[in-house]
């Protein structure tokens, strides 16, 4: 009898700590990019899910009730912030019935605080400028340096919520930093010959990307952010591209190609459907593959339009 008791006692001593560790943090992110970065630093100690898909316009996501099923059990919600998700995330948070992830609570993380933000409007902001973001451009994850900062910030928050695994998250973030630095050297070298090349983009999704890789964005297919192209603006854009000899147009996968194709046919430019997010195209499964995919496309386009 005593032997049995000792055996079960030992078994319990061995199993209990592992059971305690088995509780993984449940993280929900608004976008796939934040999910990819969270996965990098959270490893197998977290379960992470994104709400928006990579090939979806993150400004216009439907606040479906099925997302509430994800949010109601979340320990942490990571958002892009800067009003990118203003049209759909706030009602989801309110309806989730989860006090942990309400804005201002410990489980709500606005990732924009860790990133370098560009295009912060100066002076008075009005809607005459289109769907402008008063706090700055929210597409900041497209600079690998910001990716590194975001990963560090998210790891800090994960460690705060799960102090027992804090060193594990810090170790993961150090490893991610190392791998990202190596990849960054490769990407920077790949893009070095094309520094200063002029491009046109559909929406203002690429300022951080352009800054990091030395591209010069000279115009946009949209006359103002969020405003669909108009005939007069398209004509102006064609003239601009001819004058500035712009040969590459970067288009997000969720925009219609009709206007870009029409502009390209009159300017001899190449229309490039680049993915601004992880999961935007097949095979783009993590943060590294996002840049691999986009930079390879860019390189091919620049080489073919010398």
């Amino acid at each position: 009898m005593m032997k049995r008791l000792t055996f079960f006692g030992l078994l319990a001593t061995l199993l209990l700590p592992s059971l305690a560790f088995a509780k993984k943090l449940i993280v929900v992110t608004s976008t796939t990019d934040l999910a990819a970065l969270t996965q990098e630093v959270g490893g197998d100690r977290i379960n992470v899910e994104a709400i928006a898909r990579g090939y979806q316009d993150p400004h216009f996501v439907e606040a479906k009730p099925s997302f509430l099923l994800k949010l109601r059990n979340a320990d942490l919600l990571v958002s892009v912030g800067l009003d990118l998700e203003i049209g759909w995330l706030p009602p989801l948070i309110t309806q989730s019935g989860n006090g942990r992830i309400q804005r201002g609570a410990n489980g709500y993380l606005d990732a924009s605080q860790f990133a370098e933000i560009l295009e912060i409007p100066q002076g008075t902001v009005t809607r005459a400028e289109g769907d402008v973001h008063p706090l700055g451009n929210p597409h900041y994850w497209l600079d690998p340096d910001n990716g590194r900062r975001l990963a560090k910030g998210i790891a800090g928050k994960l460690g705060e919520l799960d102090p027992g695994d804090s060193s594990y998250f810090q170790q993961r973030v150090a490893d991610f930093d190392k791998r990202l630095s190596e990849a960054e050297k490769r990407w920077d070298a790949q893009m070095l010959p094309y520094h200063g090349r002029k491009v046109v983009t559909y929406h203002r999704s690429w300022p951080n990307f352009a800054k990091h890789f030395g591209l010069d964005v000279v115009g946009y297919v949209e006359p103002r952010p969020g405003i669909p192209p108009t005939p007069s603006h398209t004509l102006d854009l064609i003239n601009l591209m001819k004058r500035e000899n712009v040969k590459v147009m970067l288009i997000e996968p969720y925009f219609d190609l009709k206007t870009p194709n029409s502009v390209a046919s009159q300017t001899g430019a190449k229309v490039l459907v680049m993915t601004p997010s992880v999961g935007g195209e097949k095979g783009v499964e993590d943060y590294f593959k996002l840049f691999d995919y986009d930079l390879n496309l860019l390189k091919q386009a620049f080489d073919s339009t010398k």
């Binding site: 201002g104 606005d110 924009s112 605080q113 860790f114 990133a115 370098e116 933000i117 706090l135 700055g136 340096d145 910001n146 590194r148 900062r149 560090k152 910030g153």
Partner: peptide
């Protein structure tokens, strides 16, 4: 330099959050 850059960005972010968060 990179660490310093990161700290500046982090401080900028903190200022933004302070400005945007009521309370």
């Amino acid at each position: 330099i990179r660490d310093l850059e990161d700290r500046i960005v982090a401080l900028e972010g903190q200022v933004r959050i302070l400005k945007s968060q009521p309370g």
